[in-house]
């Protein structure tokens, strides 16, 4: 897995590419999420459009990021979820836990909507 990131409108967009299946690769995403929290960057979108697939280790990393961000008054949202990962989120009922959007821009906009609510 490779990981790039950028920031837009105060939201950090993480762009993992490849597979999130555990091992050293996956810790990169885990560590990045926790680095962002330490830096008080608490609005995070993960763009999953280039993730081929993930296993329960990958799902655990997403949950860890989500719960830690929410515990710090932040949030983690998913964007461009592929069919394979959507299927995993559905069978594990994690679809009820994560907010997911069709595009990164929609996910970014949702933070503003939440702030105005």
């Amino acid at each position: 897995m490779k990981l790039s990131f950028h920031e837009k409108n105060g939201v950090v967009i993480l762009e993992p590419r490849g597979k999130i299946m555990g091992g050293p690769d996956a810790t990169v995403l885990h560590d990045k999420l926790h680095d962002l929290i330490a830096e008080k960057k608490l609005k995070v979108v993960i763009d999953l459009s280039e993730v081929d697939w993930m296993n329960s280790t990958g799902l655990g990393i997403l949950i860890s990021g989500l719960t830690t961000l929410r515990n710090n008054q932040g949030d983690l949202k998913l964007a461009s979820v592929t069919e394979k990962i959507q299927s995993l989120l559905t069978i594990t009922k994690l679809v009820t836990v994560f907010e997911a959007y069709d595009s990164v821009d929609e996910a970014i906009t949702s933070f503003g909507a939440a702030a105005r609510a």
């Binding site: 296993n55 329960s56 655990g60 989500l66 069978i91 594990t92 009922k93 994690l94």
Partner: peptide, 14 residues
């Protein structure tokens, strides 16, 4: 649902 582990066997069975 928010546990970080414990889904492996369930996913494999699914």
């Amino acid at each position: 649902l928010l546990r970080e582990v414990g889904r492996g066997i369930f996913i494999a069975r699914s």
